Simulated assay, not measured.
Amino acid sequence: MQNAEEASKDSGKRRLSGRIHILGVGNVGTFVAHSLMSRPSPPPVTLLLHNPDLYSSWLAKKKCLALNSNGLDDIKTGFDVNVLDGRSWHSFPYWDENGEVVAETEDVEDVKAPVTAMALESVKHRLTPDSTVLLLQNGMGVVDEVNEKVFPDPQNRPNYMYGIISHGLARRKEPFQVAHTGIGTTILGPALSANSTGVVSENKDDWAPSTKYLLRTLTLTPPLVAVAETPSSLMLYQLEKLAMNAVINPLTAVMNCENGELLYNYSFTRVMRLLLLEISSVICALPELQGIPGIESRFSPERLRWMVTQLANKTAKNHSSMLQDVRAGKTTEIEYLNGYIVRRGEELGVKCVVNYMMKHLVLAKQQASKQRDASAIPIDIL
């Protein structure tokens, strides 16, 4: 709480509550929430659960998050919970004199957008230009979509942060349990500020108090192994991860194979090279990167290919998240990986035909999976 007071001291605005809300308790959300509660003096943490069934599972798990490392479960409690039921959020726990739970409700608007936009739509009535939203996701272009669909008025947007997590995390069979399979790092930094028209401030003094507080809290949380970067430095890390994911994820999703099967295969190598030639051309031409030294060498096709090979080798026995999504009939992140490269390429006059084809192969695989499950027969009416 002292950190929250320090962050808001010079802002001339109301004091920060210090509360951190976690929207989504998948592998990453569970890991971050568990890590925060591992601090000697943890901040107040609220888990946002998107349906009542998830809350029932939460009660069945005795309101605990478990992180398994080296075969041992580390269990944390003390979380507050909000549950979305229809159009209302229910806040727990509020206890009456008999020890019974009393729910407080808030009206929310209808949800009408893809996953991230939809999730933020449900809590946008809570977010102000003093708020900070941290996005811990693969791909790029999410903030642009959120601004278009959820916060079209630049004066009323929250502040955004991005994060890149390289920890090894695996979902266990039971809900609210995650296996920590490998220690990595967490790279954090601000994105566009609430009133920005496109220029990212590199000066920490210009960052919102809630952004400073969240950065400080997370970087002082040892299990996350977190470091703070400037917006431009963080973008370079994001683009490196984008390049690797835009090769490994769609290829394994289309070919239904483990990451390591992409190695030592001449035909896969040819496709990888063509994808990376386009990705390198687009990244090196991005206007927001012009003037940053070393871009051409950092994002050369040869270096990107080396990074892809290293990652595929390190995760050889893993199934990519995109392959898992296709198998589960879920919407993939392809529009924010290869789709992002195609869109930015079109803006720059670069035709990314291989990435365009890969995007549509994944979309076709995804659609075919859904149609097979539904026994549907598509009919074109002209």
Rank of each mutant, 00 (worst) to 15 (best):
P301R: 04
A226P: 01
L276T: 06
N259G: 07
M272E: 14
N318P: 03
L224I: 02
N245V: 13
V225Y: 02
L251W: 03
Q290F: 12
S232C: 10
A226Q: 00
F268K: 02
P293D: 06
P250L: 09
T252Q: 01
L274P: 00
A243F: 08
S321K: 08
G260M: 02
E261H: 05
L286N: 01
L289K: 05
V271G: 00
F268L: 09
L236Q: 12
T217V: 09
G294I: 02
L239S: 07
I283V: 15
H319S: 13
D325A: 00
L323W: 15
M244R: 12
I248S: 03
L289V: 08
Y237S: 11
P223K: 09
R270Q: 10
T269Q: 15
S320D: 05
M235T: 13
R305W: 03
R273M: 02
L323D: 06
A316I: 10
N265W: 07
M322K: 02
L304S: 11
A243Q: 09
E229K: 14
L215C: 01
F268E: 02
P223C: 11
K241I: 11
R298D: 15
M272L: 11
S267E: 12
L311N: 07
K317W: 08
L263C: 04
V271Y: 05
Y266K: 06
Q238S: 11
Q290V: 13
L234P: 05
V308W: 00
V227A: 15
T309M: 12
T309F: 08
E302S: 14
Q238N: 10
K212L: 10
S320E: 04
L251T: 04
K241N: 14
N259S: 14
L239N: 05
K212Y: 00
P287C: 04
G294L: 03
S321I: 09
R305N: 05
L289T: 06
V227Y: 13
E296Y: 03
E302Q: 14
N245P: 08
C284Q: 12
K317C: 15
P301E: 09
T221V: 02
D325R: 01
G291E: 08
A253W: 02
N249F: 09
T315K: 09
K241E: 13
G260H: 01
T252G: 01
E258N: 13
S320Q: 05
M235L: 15
A316S: 14
T230R: 07
